[in-house]
Amino acid sequence: MNKFLLLLCSLVAFISCLKSAHAEFTVAECRELGFIKTQLMCSNCDKLDDFGLEAIKPHCKQCCTQDQQPAAQRTYAKAILEVCTCKFRAYPQIQAFIQSGRPAKFPNLQIKYVRGLDPIVKLLDASGKVQETLSITKWNTDTVEEFFETHLAKEGAGKSSYSVVEDASDDDDDDDFLRTNRI
């Protein structure tokens, strides 16, 4: 009887170990592993193999959030590319995109000049609410164009212009800055 009880206890311990091995990690455990659980999408874990990081893939999978839908299928009603022209030297690829004819292909793209801001893209839903904000500091011109082709809704395809908005302010000094800070 003692052997049976010992075997049963061992079996229960083994099953609980298996369960914990397949359970998701807590936010704190993921942070200790170098993952931010709230921002890590499971589709990103699948890309680890491409970089020879198969060893951390199981931990990544236990810390990730399931994608709502594949990234290629997500589209947004509108996008705002925000940048400061004073940063064009640091980001010539963004300058090249803006100064080329490429933005005209996207009628639902707005370019907004914000003083001192590194280039970002804000993706909005149909009601104008920001759904995602992405840093595009490392993107090249082709990547920016491809991103908009993939993720911007094709509504208004007949239009051939996009809008440029400069950061308005009540200060006359800011107005002078904007006059000299145009493309």
Score class of each variant (00 low, 15 high):
H151T: 08
T137G: 15
A157I: 12
V121P: 11
G116V: 01
A157D: 09
T150M: 01
P119E: 13
L124G: 03
A157N: 09
T143K: 00
D125Y: 10
W139V: 14
D142W: 14
K159H: 06
K129R: 10
H151R: 11
K154D: 14
V130T: 13
A157Q: 11
L117P: 00
R115E: 03
W139P: 11
K154F: 08
T137L: 04
L134T: 08
L117W: 05
S160D: 11
G128K: 03
K112S: 13
E132T: 11
E146H: 08
E155T: 09
N140Y: 10
N140I: 11
I136G: 00
S161R: 07
D118F: 00
E146F: 12
L152F: 08
S127F: 08
R115Q: 01
L152Y: 02
E145W: 03
V114L: 14
E155A: 10
Y113L: 12
K112P: 08
S161Y: 10
T137A: 14
L134M: 10
W139S: 11
S161Q: 11
Q131K: 03
V144Q: 07
E132I: 07
N140G: 12
Y113K: 07
V121Y: 12
L124P: 05
V130L: 07
T143Y: 05
I120T: 06
L123C: 14
A126M: 03
K159F: 14
I136F: 06
G158E: 03
I136R: 05
L152E: 05
S160N: 07
V130D: 06
D125E: 10
D125H: 07
K129D: 13
K159A: 12
V144E: 05
D142S: 14
G128H: 08
G158A: 01
K138G: 15
Y113S: 00
T141P: 03
A126T: 12
G158Q: 02
D118H: 04
K112W: 10
N140W: 01
